[in-house]
Every structure is written in structure tokens, then in C-alpha cells.
Design a protein around this nucleic acid. Structure first.
Length: 269
DNA sequence: ATTAATGTTCAGAA
DNA sequence: TTTCTGAACATTAA
């Protein structure tokens, strides 16, 4: 998402932000739009970046937007999947060009926040989120996982321990690392944590390279409303009953923390 | 027609 | 203190 909107957003002037007139319930925007516009309208968008699963639009003032797409949110520069679930529009101006950036969200669990410079710094460097999964060292992994007694799959989804892994990728990472999702996180040997570290780097960077996973319902789209292709590389996610690509054993689905986990009971120990 | 599932996060309870 | 549960929402499949 960040890659897709960066060229448009960075260096643009934000004319204003508005909720789009759609029939669905309003998503959380905080503070209210009018208050945001008083502080943000007319300002330059200096930088677009990612922090774990959040998108940050930072203004020249140091204040900035933090967007959480959650389950079904998308940042778009054009052609929404359907206009009925468009939620927020940023009107941008770059030279003579006037274009819009959109937040589309089918379920509406996503959020848009506008934070002061200080609160933004707290989000980016504070302790609510752990270190970013793609920037952590193996030693940081070992320390983070040693702090919990939960199963490794559950721990991987705790954004305060490791930030940036979602449900789908947790299953894929554990399969690649050959680790059972039910293993106690803190009981993993340093060697196995190193494997987990490497598997995370691999799965997440490949998923990003392939523009994400567009699953059966087709919700996930890049900023140009195009499907991703990483779903074609999935080994276990949503494949219960099928053969493990590595050892042909039947893939299982279990529920942990009210979320589905898919794994191979033979090659994941 | 219900019920459960879906890529997430958080408040409040245990 | 840490971990678990249910709710927020819209849509589809069973």
C-alpha cells in the first residue's frame, strides 16, 4: 500500500480531507474531520511510510495521519473496488495536478487518526508496538519470545512482541520454519528462533514483492485496485484437507485465540 | 433462516 | 502482571 501511494502522496499539498458520502456506517476518524482540517489543510505531505501494519502520512509540520486498514481496508490512488465502501478522501494538489487518495474499507473496522508530532513519535518509537518484524535481529526475536508463555502462533500475532505479522502470514511463516504452531514460544531453542527469524524475513518480503495475498473473496488490492499474487505461494493457509507441499501429509486447521491456524502435523514440530 | 467464518485491534474480565 | 473473551462491522458460505 505504501509503495503504491508514495509517488502520488509524497510532495503533494493536502487541500483537505473528507468523509465520502457512502451509505455505510462511518469508520473511526479521530479527531473529527473539521479539527483535522484546521491543522492539516494546506500542508505538505513530506513522507509516506509503514510502521508494522500501519500507514503513516507525515506532514511538513511533523504531525501526521496514521491509517490502520485492519481486516479489509485499502489505500487507493484510483478505481475503488466499489464506490459503496469508500470511506475517506484526501484531496491532493501537486503542481497543477489535483488528485485524490482514498481509504476504502468493506467491513469498516479500519481507522484513520491524525496525531501531533509528539504522539506520532510515540507511536513510531514507543512501546505499544514491538520492533518491526522485518527490521528485527535474531537476538531481538529471542528476547521477545522469551517474555511469554503462549503458543508461538499466538505470540506471533501479538503486535507488542513482534509488530507486523498477521494471521495468514503467521501460518505460512511457521510452516517454512518447520515449527508447530502449538509450541510454547519461550521453549524454542535459539536455533529454532533463528529459523523463525529467517522464515519471517522470507515470507514477508516475498509477500510484499508479490503485492500481497488476494484471497477468495478478492478483497485485498494494491493501490491501483489490482490483485496481489502471493496467494499462489501459500503452502498451508486455507488449505485444510489438502496435502502438505513438502511431505504430502494432510494439512490441519485448528483454532487458537479464536483465529484459524493451518499447519502440517508432520513437518512442523 | 441461522450460524460461523473472514486478512484486526482493544477494553475489560479472568 | 499476563492472557483470554467478546465486540466493533459487512459479507459470504455452510
Amino acid at each position: 500500500m505504501v509503495r503504491g501511494i508514495r509517488a502520488l502522496a509524497e510532495g503533494s499539498i493536502l487541500e483537505n480531507v473528507r468523509r465520502t458520502p457512502c451509505s455505510c456506517r462511518p469508520i473511526l476518524v479521530d479527531p473529527p474531520i473539521a479539527a483535522i482540517n484546521r491543522r492539516a489543510a494546506g500542508k505538505l505531505i513530506q513522507q509516506v511510510r509503514r510502521r508494522a501494519k500501519r500507514i503513516v502520512l507525515e506532514l511538513e509540520t511533523g504531525d501526521g495521519f496514521v491509517i490502520e486498514p485492519r481486516m479489509t481496508g485499502l489505500m487507493l490512488v484510483s478505481d475503488p473496488p466499489d464506490v459503496g465502501h469508500l470511506r475517506v478522501e484526501w484531496l491532493l494538489q501537486k503542481g497543477k495536478l489535483r488528485r485524490s487518495l482514498w481509504f476504502w474499507d468493506r467491513r469498516g473496522l479500519g481507522t484513520v487518526r491524525f496525531l501531533s508530532r509528539d504522539h506520532l513519535a510515540e507511536l513510531l518509537n514507543g512501546s505499544t508496538l514491538g520492533a518491526d518484524a522485518l527490521e528485527m535481529t535474531a537476538a531481538q526475536w529471542l528476547a521477545a519470545l522469551g517474555r511469554t508463555r503462549r503458543a508461538i502462533k499466538v505470540a506471533l500475532l501479538d503486535q507488542a512482541l513482534v509488530a507486523g505479522i498477521g494471521n495468514l502470514y503467521a501460518s505460512e511463516i511457521l510452516h517454512l520454519a518447520k515449527i508447530s504452531p502449538q509450541t510454547q514460544a519461550a521453549s524454542l531453542s535459539a536455533i529454532r528462533v533463528e529459523r523463525l527469524h529467517a522464515a519471517t524475513q522470507h515470507v514477508l518480503s516475498e509477500a510484499i514483492r508479490h503485492e500481497g495475498s488476494t484471497l477468495g473473496d478478492g478483497t485485498y488490492r494494491n493501490a491501483l485496485n489490482q490483485s496481489g499474487s502471493y496467494q499462489n505461494a501459500h503452502q498451508v493457509y486455507d488449505r485444510a484437507g489438502e496435502a502438505c507441499p513438502r511431505c504430502r501429509t494432510t494439512i490441519l486447521r485448528i483454532v487458537q485465540s479464536q483465529r484459524s491456524t493451518f499447519y502440517c502435523p508432520r513437518c512442523q514440530r
